[in-house]
Design a protein around this nucleic acid. Structure first.
Ligand SMILES: [Zn+2]
Ligand SMILES: [Zn+2]
Ligand SMILES: [Zn+2]
Ligand SMILES: [Zn+2]
Lengths: 165, 165
DNA sequence: TATCTAATGTTATATCATAACAGTCAAGAG
DNA sequence: CTCTTGACTGTTATGATATAACATTAGATA
């Protein structure tokens, strides 16, 4: 799906590299342990698959890999694992892409935003506490009680912006 | 789909009421005229359908209505009209709902945000110039050139928040 | 062990969206 | 005026995303 001719470490700075992926997986496991979550084999493997990927993966892309490794081969297998990860903050859903991506700091309670490159489809998770605060306030001003939000930006990542110039 | 037991004017303050809808439609027509856009019968009717609706409508809901009125009965008919409206700023796509909603101020160039009620599914368009600016800056700080963004909040609208209490 | 619950797996189907191509129509060129 | 052209509308067919419903299995509990 994605091409990834980018120098490693640029297009998705936060979770590129096997070492980073391992570190994040370890964090996620600790987090699950602490919270009494059951990070079963499919779920754990699904998280690994997301971590191994650059950019975000569609549910069916995850499913392909799971099926190839002997897990169930039907959509609910992937959707259930992905939804579990999202519900417990170990992954995020990227609505614009109908795709999922591993959270880069699963232990912190946070609201995430994403920067999606139009050209290379890289997805970068950004922290947006201030944006979320502003949004909560603005919503509150019209009587709306904000609970969750989707904040996704589309444009050119630094690498692609450079190439385009 | 939506229930709408809300007092008119509350759940979707900006385009509720036939008078409001007519006013917005007139604006949209003027805007199209000025920009040399062809607001053909299907497109115009599609916009009306969105304006008549409370909340956002899925493409197939729009299609049903169009088909019932003698327009084409196949998905591309609805998607083409909807995409036209979105491209020209007369409507917006609400990603979280896989749905579309008429723009409440089609003549102004703007970035929109939406507040979506979890309970009654009302959708309120909000202006977010300051949020967008903040986001563009934050993105720029990591070298990302932001072009478009999706900002959608989910929670309880003022009416539903009141009822829940 | 017997029982209960959460998790996994399956089949089937719902929902959302687009590709590809044929017919229509109005504006501009000759 | 007629021909060409390009935008628009329509169709069939298919692709892509997501969930409902139910059978089976594996862990925890009593
Ligand atoms: Zn995260
Ligand atoms: Zn890029
Ligand atoms: Zn708008
Ligand atoms: Zn509501």
């Amino acid at each position: 799906m994605t091409d990834h001719s980018h120098p490693a470490g640029f297009c998705c700075p936060d979770h590129s590299g096997a070492a980073q992926a391992r570190a994040i997986l370890a964090q996620a496991e600790a987090h699950a342990q602490a919270g009494g979550l059951r990070l079963t084999p499919v779920r754990r493997r699904t998280l690994e698959i997301l971590l191994e990927a650059h950019g975000a993966l569609g549910a069916y892309e995850v499913l392909e890999r799971l099926a190839a490794e002997g897990y169930g081969a039907q959509p609910p297998v992937a959707y259930r694992a992905l939804n579990f990860l999202v519900e417990h903050g170990l992954a995020h859903r990227v609505r614009r892409l109908n795709a999922f991506t591993a959270c880069v700091h699963p232990t912190q309670e946070h609201r995430a935003a994403f920067l999606i490159c139009d050209r290379c489809e890289s997805v970068t998770e950004a922290s947006v506490e201030s944006l979320t605060r502003a949004m909560t306030e603005a919503a509150g001003a019209v009587g709306f009680k904000l609970e969750r939000s989707t904040i996704e930006g589309v444009g050119l990542c630094s690498v692609c912006a450079g190439e385009a110039a």
